[in-house]
Measured scan of single mutants.
Amino acid sequence: EPREEEAEKYIKRANGDYDKAQELAKKDGNEEIAEAIKEYKKR
Rank of each mutant, 00 (worst) to 15 (best):
A36C: 09
R43V: 09
K27F: 10
A34R: 03
K12S: 08
D17S: 04
K12W: 07
Y18T: 03
R13F: 10
A14R: 00
E23M: 10
E8H: 08
Q22I: 15
N15H: 11
E4G: 09
E4S: 13
E32H: 14
K38E: 11
L24D: 05
G16D: 03
D28F: 03
K41A: 11
G29T: 02
A36N: 06
R43A: 10
R43S: 10
Y10M: 03
Y10G: 03
K42Q: 11
E35T: 08
A36V: 13
A25H: 01
P2A: 14
E32Y: 10
K42P: 04
G16R: 03
N30G: 03
R13M: 15
D17K: 02
I11F: 02
G16A: 01
I33S: 03
N15K: 10
P2K: 14
A21F: 01
I33K: 02
D19S: 06
A34S: 06
K12H: 09
D28Q: 02
E4V: 11
L24N: 05
K26W: 10
Y18S: 02
I37G: 01
E8N: 07
E5N: 14
E32Q: 11
K41R: 10
G29H: 05
E32P: 06
D17I: 02
E6R: 06
K42D: 10
K41I: 08
E35H: 09
E8K: 14
I37L: 05
E31A: 10
N15L: 09
Y18I: 06
A7Q: 04
E1I: 13
K41V: 06
K12P: 03
K42F: 07
K27D: 09
E32R: 12
R3P: 12
P2V: 13
N30W: 07
E39S: 06
E1P: 12
I11H: 01
Y40M: 15
E39H: 07
A7D: 03
A36G: 04
K9C: 15
Y18A: 04
R13A: 15
D28W: 02
A25L: 00
P2T: 15
E32N: 09
E31R: 07
G29M: 04
A34Q: 05
Y40W: 08
D17P: 00
K42R: 11
Y40C: 12
E39N: 08
E8I: 14
R13D: 11
A25I: 01
D28N: 04
K20N: 04
R43I: 11
E35V: 07
E35Q: 10
E5C: 14
Q22P: 00
I37P: 00
D19K: 08
E39A: 08
D19L: 09
K38A: 11
R43N: 11
K26T: 09
E6I: 10
E32S: 10
E8Y: 12
E23V: 07
D17R: 02
R43W: 09
L24T: 04
K20W: 11
Y18K: 02
L24S: 05
E35M: 10
K20S: 05
G16H: 05
A21N: 00
Y40L: 15
E4Y: 14
